[in-house]
C-alpha cells in the first residue's frame, strides 16, 4: 500500500510543478502590478509553441530527387535530410534530439519580448481600472492568443518527442533502498520536477538576494513610497511582468513531451492555475507554490481506482472541490493576506 501511495505522490509531482510554475507567474504579476491576468495560460501555451517552432526550424529538410533509383511505381525517390544534419553532421543530430530543452534558449528572449510588449501595450492602461475589467481584457487577449496559435499551427496537438536518453524510467524505489522495479518513475517527469524546483528557487532567490529583487519587494509592499524615493518602479514592474512570462513560457516548453501542445492548452491550464492561485491566497508566492504542488498531488491521488470505487468521478472534480472547501473555510486561501482582492 505504501508503494502505491508513494507512486501516486510521485505522479502528482510533475503536474504539481506545472501548476506551481504558472501560479508563481500569476502571483508575481498580481503582487507587483495588481493585475489579474487571465492571459497567463496563453503565455504557457506560447512557451510550448516556442518548442514546436524550434523543432520545426531544426527539422527543415532539403528534398532532393535521387537520380538513380525509382520507386516501384516509377516515380523518382525523394531524399529528405534535415538541413542541420547536412551542415553540422552528428552535432546536428544531437541538436534535433535535444530540441525540447534547447528551445528554452529560444523561449527566454521570445517570452520576455511578448511579456514586455503586452504589459506596455495593454496591461499598463488597466492598473487603475477595476479587477473585473482587467479580467475581461485579459480574457479577450487569451482568446486572441489562442486563435493566433490555431491560425499558425493548426488546430491539432503537435506531439514533441523527448530526448532519447531521457525516455526511460527511473527506478526511484531502488535509489531509496527499496525493492527494485516497484517504484519506477518516467525520467522526463523527474527532469520536469527538478527543473521546476530550479526555476522556483531562482525566482525566489532573485527576489530575495539581488538589489533589483529588493526594490521590487519594496514596491510590492508600498509602491508610492518607493516611487517617491526616486526609483522608477514602473520599469521594474514591467520587467517583472516579462519575467513572469518567461517562467510561464519555460514551464510550457518543458511540458511539451508530457502533453502535446494545442491551442486550447492555455485555457485548460488557466482555469486550474487560477484555482491554484486562489487556493494559495491571492498575492502570496509561497501559497501559490504550495497550492500548486498540493493540488497536483491530490489530483493524482484522486485518480487511484481504490478511491474512485468509493467516489465515482472524484478525479474529475477534486481540484474544484478542494477550491470550494478551502475558499469557504479559509476565506483568503491558504496563505493570503488580509484585504487583498476582497471586492
Amino acid at each position: 500500500m505504501f508503494e502505491v501511495l508513494f507512486l501516486q505522490f510521485l505522479n502528482g509531482l510533475d503536474k504539481g510543478s506545472a501548476y506551481a510554475l504558472i501560479a508563481l507567474g500569476l502571483t508575481l504579476v498580481f503582487g507587483t502590478l495588481g493585475v489579474v491576468n487571465f492571459a497567463h495560460g496563453a503565455l504557457f501555451m506560447f512557451g510550448a509553441f516556442c518548442a514546436v517552432l524550434f523543432r520545426q526550424l531544426l527539422t527543415l529538410e532539403t528534398v532532393t530527387l535521387d537520380p538513380e533509383k525509382l520507386s516501384p511505381w516509377g516515380a523518382p525517390v525523394e531524399i529528405r535530410q534535415p538541413l542541420v544534419q547536412a551542415w553540422f553532421g552528428d552535432v546536428g543530430a544531437v541538436l534535433v534530439n535535444y530540441s525540447v530543452p534547447l528551445s528554452l534558449l529560444l523561449s527566454i528572449p521570445v517570452m520576455l519580448i511578448i511579456g514586455i510588449v503586452m504589459e506596455r501595450g495593454i496591461i499598463k492602461h488597466f492598473y487603475k481600472r477595476p479587477h473585473a475589467e482587467q479580467i475581461l481584457v485579459t480574457f479577450g487577449l487569451a482568446i486572441v492568443f489562442g486563435e493566433i496559435i490555431k491560425a499558425v499551427f493548426g488546430p491539432n496537438p503537435i506531439p514533441q518527442p523527448m530526448p532519447t536518453e531521457l525516455r526511460g524510467a527511473a527506478d526511484i524505489g531502488a535509489w531509496l533502498g527499496m525493492q527494485p522495479n516497484v517504484i519506477t518513475y518516467p525520467l522526463w517527469r523527474l527532469v520536469y520536477f527538478l527543473f521546476a524546483l530550479g526555476v522556483i528557487g531562482s525566482v525566489l532567490a532573485f527576489l530575495q538576494f539581488t538589489t533589483f529583487g529588493m526594490v521590487v519587494r519594496a514596491g510590492m509592499a508600498d509602491r508610492e513610497t518607493v516611487g517617491a524615493l526616486g526609483i522608477n518602479i514602473d520599469r521594474r514592474f514591467t520587467i517583472m511582468f516579462g519575467i513572469a512570462a518567461v517562467v510561464a513560457g519555460m514551464a510550457g516548453v518543458m511540458y511539451t513531451p508530457l502533453l502535446p501542445p494545442s491551442y486550447t492548452m492555455g485555457m485548460d491550464f488557466l482555469v486550474i492555475s487560477f484555482v491554484v492561485v486562489v487556493v494559495g491566497g491571492m498575492g502570496s508566492l509561497p501559497g501559490a507554490i504550495a497550492a500548486g504542488f498540493l493540488l497536483g498531488i491530490l489530483q493524482s491521488f484522486a485518480s487511484m481506482h481504490q478511491l474512485k470505487a468509493f467516489f465515482p468521478g472524484i478525479d474529475q472534480v477534486i481540484i474544484y472541490l478542494v477550491a470550494v472547501v478551502v475558499l469557504l473555510v479559509l476565506p483568503r486561501g491558504l496563505m493570503g493576506r488580509r484585504g487583498v482582492m476582497e471586492a
Binding site: V36, H131, I135, V271, F274, V275, V278, M282, I319, Y320, L321, A323, V324, L327, L328, P331, M341, E342, A343
Partner: peptide
C-alpha cells in the same frame, strides 16, 4: 465571498 473569489467559486 466576493470579488475574484466569488468568480472562482462559481467557475469551480
Amino acid at each position: 465571498r466576493s470579488g475574484i473569489y466569488f468568480s472562482i467559486l462559481t467557475l469551480a
